[in-house]
């Protein structure tokens, strides 16, 4: 995967281009489901959650939903965790997931737009300094 060696200005272009991928917007994606996969998360079963989410995505045939992985969300005691981001909404963090739960979340929140209260921890993002 040899790519072109970047220069400083090309770095900026990549930044702009990929910033769009990180925000949920019309055109790119309407919703992102982020499964938190650090060592802890995986030990707690995050891989199964990811598979279940991917399967749900496939079954739903939605084209505007992204299922992606990221790292540890920090709250190991409540792993596995996932974050659901819907366009125009603050992200919602779900905790103590099971395959069952993520399927329900996918159906009701990601596709249906309704937060699954029972499994949700909180909304919003963390405070960066």
């Amino acid at each position: 995967m040899e790519k072109k060696k970047l220069t400083v200005s090309e770095l900026k272009n990549i930044r702009q281009e990929f910033q769009e991928h990180l925000t949920v917007r019309a055109g790119v994606a309407r919703a992102r489901v982020i499964i938190h996969m650090g060592t802890c998360g995986i030990a707690a079963g995050a891989r199964e959650i990811l598979n279940a989410a991917l399967k749900a995505l496939e079954e739903s045939q939605s084209k505007d939903v992204i299922v992606t992985t990221s790292s540890c969300a920090g709250l190991c005691s409540s792993e596995p965790m996932a974050t659901v981001e819907i366009q125009h909404e603050p992200p919602v963090k779900y905790i103590n997931l099971t395959e069952e739960k993520i399927r329900k979340i996918f159906k009701e929140h990601v596709l249906g737009g309704k937060i699954v209260k029972e499994y949700a921890l909180a909304t919003g993002s963390e405070t960066t300094a």
Binding site: L75, A120, G124
Partner: peptide, 16 residues
């Protein structure tokens, strides 16, 4: 749904 569902904001949870 955020207003509807009485789940707290992340910033209100002491852990975060």
């Amino acid at each position: 749904p955020v207003e509807k569902a009485p789940i707290p904001a992340l910033k209100e949870i002491p852990f975060f």
